[in-house]
């Protein structure tokens, strides 16, 4: 079996007496579209924070493509290809999308250290940024300040920024949160159509989207992984029905 794109072993995290991650064991094979589901407070975002290094685990290991990354900071993980987006938009309000994505491309290429050459000298980087914006249907608004964009467009820009770093593993924290349903479908279609070199894990509450776009599903409850499997296995699993699917609300 080939090395998983991302794996965790025995990951633990407590906030005081509150257990937010308990013995998390995950293996994400390359190219898979994973959904991470679970009721509110199950520890989904915490898990993303742990994997990307924004939180330090109390114990356990994280490996990216077989490389041990537990001790690395968030920036170093991004440079190795482990990238996330945010549940609440975290963008550059006074930059336009072209500038923002070009910035991310330049950081990846390490040309952002250069201060004596104008950005126009880096046409390959600018074109790549523009290309990413185009695939996410943002080319038409790419000269407008980010804060003026529609909410759905800002959600797409979140993904565009992540793609600019050329991720190997992309962790999307509720990418469609707050986006109207028809636009969400487009957004998820764009995500699942990404290159098979990219492994995707997304948090999502809408079960329709989860079952439509995920090839495998992880269910978390109370800081633990309850079960992991294909959409069919998950929907047939009585434990999942009990704690999650059977409950009145879908979050």
């Amino acid at each position: 079996m080939s090395t998983p794109a991302l794996s965790t072993r025995g990951l633990n995290k407590n906030f005081g007496s509150l257990v937010v991650a308990s013995d998390i064991e995950i293996e994400l094979p390359q190219g898979v579209r994973y959904a991470l589901i679970g009721p509110n407070g199950a520890g989904k975002t915490t898990l993303i924070n742990l994997m990307t290094g924004m939180l330090k685990p109390d114990g356990g290991q994280i490996q990216l493509g077989g490389e041990e990354i537990t001790a690395l900071g968030p920036e170093a993980r991004v440079r190795r290809g482990l990238v996330r987006t945010f549940q609440i938009n975290s963008l550059f309000p006074h930059l336009n999308p072209l500038e923002a994505v070009t910035l991310a491309v330049c950081e990846r290429q390490e040309v952002s250290r250069t201060w004596w050459k104008p950005i126009t000298a880096y046409s390959a980087e600018v074109d790549e940024a523009y290309g990413i914006l185009k695939t996410l249907m943002l080319a038409q608004v790419c000269y407008r300040q980010t804060r003026e964009l529609a909410y759905g467009q800002q959600r797409l820009l979140e993904i565009a920024l992540a793609l600019a770093t050329r991720p190997k593993v992309l962790l999307l924290d509720e990418p469609a949160a707050g986006v109207p349903r028809d636009e969400s479908a487009e957004l998820f279609a764009a995500v699942t159509n990404l290159s098979q070199d990219i492994t995707v894990l997304f948090i999502e509450h809408d079960m329709d989207f989860v079952f439509r776009f995920a090839s495998r599903i992880i269910v978390m409850v109370g800081g633990r992984i309850l079960v992991e499997g294909t959409p069919d296995e998950i929907s047939a699993d009585p434990r999942v029905r009990e704690v999650y699917l059977g409950s009145a609300h879908h979050g």
Partner: peptide, 16 residues
Amino acid sequence: RGIRENAVRMRAVGAE
């Protein structure tokens, strides 16, 4: 300008 606008996001794009 990216740092001025959003330092947290800069970390998430791997910026130095």
